[in-house]
């Protein structure tokens, strides 16, 4: 079950004293306020919190599509603050796998092409990218739908394509933003089962959700409130763990 134990693990995402301040109509909003945490390789976390707690901001920072106002964020040891826009994009294409609530497949591309998009933008893409994409499509159960356009697939199928896409670049972290939010409960369970399998294979998964039931499926839960850590819970034993200083 991953390398969940303290100390023995490798850090894939380290956040130190992260502050993210938005300017909204003259006054400042501190979406994250001195946030520090470390996610280890192979962990399966759910990130929870009410709206405005800063979980979306944290997700954007973790996904490198937003930058912290102050503080340090390292992905596999690489400091994000030092990167320019191109380098940050390259980092996303190599180390981040996104799964969105509304699947966000590109409508004019077929399944195989959609899975390949992150590799398409890498500076030095792997030679076996297409084999990898085919294998992943097979893995999520869509091996026979490679030539289909997103419109021709059900919501659950689209989300499977999105998960395959999030894995094609063998990322440091898979970020899932309300990944089951648009799905009926049966399909949602299937997707969550898929995440369980991926976790069993050693993938690092961070699942942002506001649904307690979804959160409970993960290994551990990180609860945010007002831009700070409110609670860290280990779902395997159902006990609240003490704060994780990283």
């Amino acid at each position: 079950m991953g390398s969940g134990g303290l100390g023995s693990a490798t850090a894939v995402a380290e956040l130190r004293d992260i502050t993210r301040v938005y300017k909204m109509g003259g006054h400042e909003v501190r979406a994250l306020d001195g946030f520090s945490f470390t996610f280890q390789k192979g962990e399966y976390w759910s990130i929870m919190g009410s709206s405005g707690s800063g979980k979306s901001t944290l997700l954007n920072l973790l996904g490198c599509i937003d930058r912290a106002t102050t503080g340090s964020y390292r992905v596999r040891g690489e400091e994000v603050a030092d990167l320019d826009d191109d380098q940050l994009s390259e980092l996303r294409s190599r180390e981040i796998g996104f799964v969105f609530q509304s699947y966000n497949l590109i409508p004019q591309l077929d399944v195989l092409e959609n899975i390949l998009v992150p590799l398409f933008y890498q500076d030095d893409p792997p030679a076996d990218g297409e084999e990898r994409a085919r294998a992943l499509a097979e893995r999520v159960g869509l091996g026979s739908r490679l030539g289909h356009k997103p419109m021709e697939l059900s919501g659950g199928q689209q989300q499977r394509v999105a998960i395959a896409r999030a894995l094609v670049n063998d990322p440091a972290i898979v970020l899932a933003d309300e990944a089951t939010g648009n799905l009926d409960s049966k399909t949602a369970l299937e997707i969550l089962a898929l995440f369980d399998e991926l976790h069993a294979e050693g993938k690092t998964i961070l699942l942002v959700t506001h649904e307690a039931k979804v959160g409970e499926r993960s290994e551990r839960t990180l609860k945010l409130r007002d831009g700070r850590i409110d609670e860290v819970r280990d779902n395997r034993v159902g006990l609240a763990a003490s704060g994780n200083p990283g």
Binding site: D85, I96, I106, Y121
Partner: peptide, 11 residues
Amino acid sequence: IRRALGAKKRH
């Protein structure tokens, strides 16, 4: 989406 998946500005 493309930017999130790693597209650079020039892409």
